[in-house]
Design a protein around this nucleic acid. Structure first.
Lengths: 124, 124
DNA sequence: GTAAAAAGTAGTAATGATTACTACTTTCGA
DNA sequence: TCGAAAGTAGTAATCATTACTACTTTTTAC
């Protein structure tokens, strides 16, 4: 396997075992439980290369951090303006087809973020 | 009008007169032609408050910059991995309805980014 | 109209997420 | 088994963005 290292494997495992959308720093905290002296730079480098190779997705919601998602299936990210939560929302992929005009553009992956208020924050 | 200043107006004008998705620094360059001694901090502050008030949209594609969009109508952003271009793609809004499960979440705006290769870059 | 309060600005300094760098270690094909 | 290639830890540097301060403009109340 190319690009193998136990650090890279631990990073991918940590990300896949989560159901949230952690930042690099949060992955770092998680992986430290397995590899205590792992370097933050190693986490950043591996996350970037995992995004590059298409094994994980990068999600930016405009909160100043890059978030990562081990779930590559098509779904929306609901971002609560109030509490900052990022919630997954299933999408009917069949309905999605033919939705947009691509005109020569070759789509590979997509990340959609819907901004609003989550159930808790909107009930105030 | 609340929050009025000629700087804020010039920033909004600059953004609305563009058909691209500029960063704060690019808006700053544009507005300097009208107000030469405007401060970059002023541009950042006004862009943030225009996003906050819903007059413009913030688009993050993961290139390390925050981009701004004066067009609030629903559309996708096609982000070319190769040249970094951000291309608008019209969406059939009727088809979009009923696409996703929101479960109590109150959507306000949404920003969708599709990653891939633009026409020029995929023809290589 | 005018004066004080409120809000905004220019310019600069500070912040902090991310990236770059270097000496060292691990991986892997021959 | 060995050496090149690739990866890592730890630290320093980068740079988009934010915070701060003294000053200016806008707004409000009379």
């Amino acid at each position: 396997m190319a690009n193998y290292s136990k650090q890279r494997e631990a990073i991918l495992n940590d990300l896949r075992s989560r159901c949230d959308h952690p930042t690099a720093a949060q992955v770092y905290e998680g992986v430290k439980k397995v590899i205590p002296n792992i370097s933050l730079g190693t986490v950043y480098r591996n996350l970037a290369s995992l995004v590059e190779s298409g094994e994980i997705l990068s999600v930016t919601v405009g909160d100043g951090y890059e978030h990562f998602d081990g779930d590559k299936s098509f779904h929306l990210h609901l971002h609560c303006k109030e509490c900052g939560a990022i919630i997954d929302s299933r999408v009917n992929e069949e309905k999605l087809k033919g939705l947009a005009e691509f005109d020569g553009f070759k789509p590979e992956t997509s990340v959609c973020v819907v901004y609003g208020l989550c159930k808790n924050c909107s009930k105030q």
